[in-house]
Nucleic acid binder design. Structure first.
Lengths: 119, 119
DNA sequence: TACCGTTATATTGTGAAAAATATAACGCCC
DNA sequence: GGGCGTTATATTTTTCACAATATAACGGTA
């Protein structure tokens, strides 16, 4: 296929991968990174800030994930020591691990397809 | 991972796959379907109508693809018998075949990942 | 020659998604 | 008790991609 490309250009296969339920997206790369930031920072608002995302957007994403999962992925506390906070539940930790692995398999797929472009 | 989902729901892996160059997207599923419609209908405007897309959008996509490829993927004629028309070049036909195959490999990947969700 | 359907291109209108803003409630800590 | 930072939620504003519209040129054909 490389004979189709303009010469000397760096073309590559790229894409997006997600898990969707009957009504809505369940997990994608953005939601995954948000979960990881919540894991790191202990708060939805700090996670949102770290991702350059509005708090409302982050909260809506968390709400969507929690609503679709059998057990919530994120637990939150209002008020208290430093105003409250959020953390991953065991289900959330498991979801992060398994979906991160899925993303890595996808990265392998994309690398193989990119290599095939130049065969 | 299925133990994370709300019971009895139909979750599945889904995604999008494309080929990108240094500046812009080169081929995606929408561009592929547009090329196939041009192949079928012999015109950019008919292809756009068949896809529920504005002519300008379709023309911009064709222009982007032609600009990035070593040889144009679509050839167009202005004026003449029925006002003109468009057709795939040999390079365009090859691009459709190869990228369609790439999409099918991606569909296989998605099916395998969906199956894995319920392992 | 006038007409037609198309390519080619610019400009304007529009609607949906996202950000920004606002407000309330909560519970620890000084 | 008052302040603080957070969650939770609604409303307003902004942005941006896309559609819609407009216009010109082209070259067969009747």
């Amino acid at each position: 296929m490389h004979e189709l490309f303009a010469e000397g250009q760096a073309f590559r296969a790229n894409g997006r991968l997600w898990i969707e339920g009957p009504a809505d997206r369940f997990l994608g790369i953005g939601r995954l990174e948000l979960l990881e930031q919540i894991q790191t920072t202990g708060s939805i608002s700090k996670a949102a800030k770290a991702m350059g995302m509005s708090y409302k957007k982050a909260w809506d994403l968390v709400s969507s994930m929690n609503a679709q999962a059998r057990q919530p992925l994120v637990g939150a506390q209002v008020g208290g020591a430093h105003g409250g906070g959020a953390a991953l539940t065991p289900a959330g930790t498991q979801a992060v691990a398994e979906f991160r692995a899925m993303q890595e398999r996808f990265a392998q797929f994309l690398a193989a397809e990119t290599a095939r472009l130049y065969q």
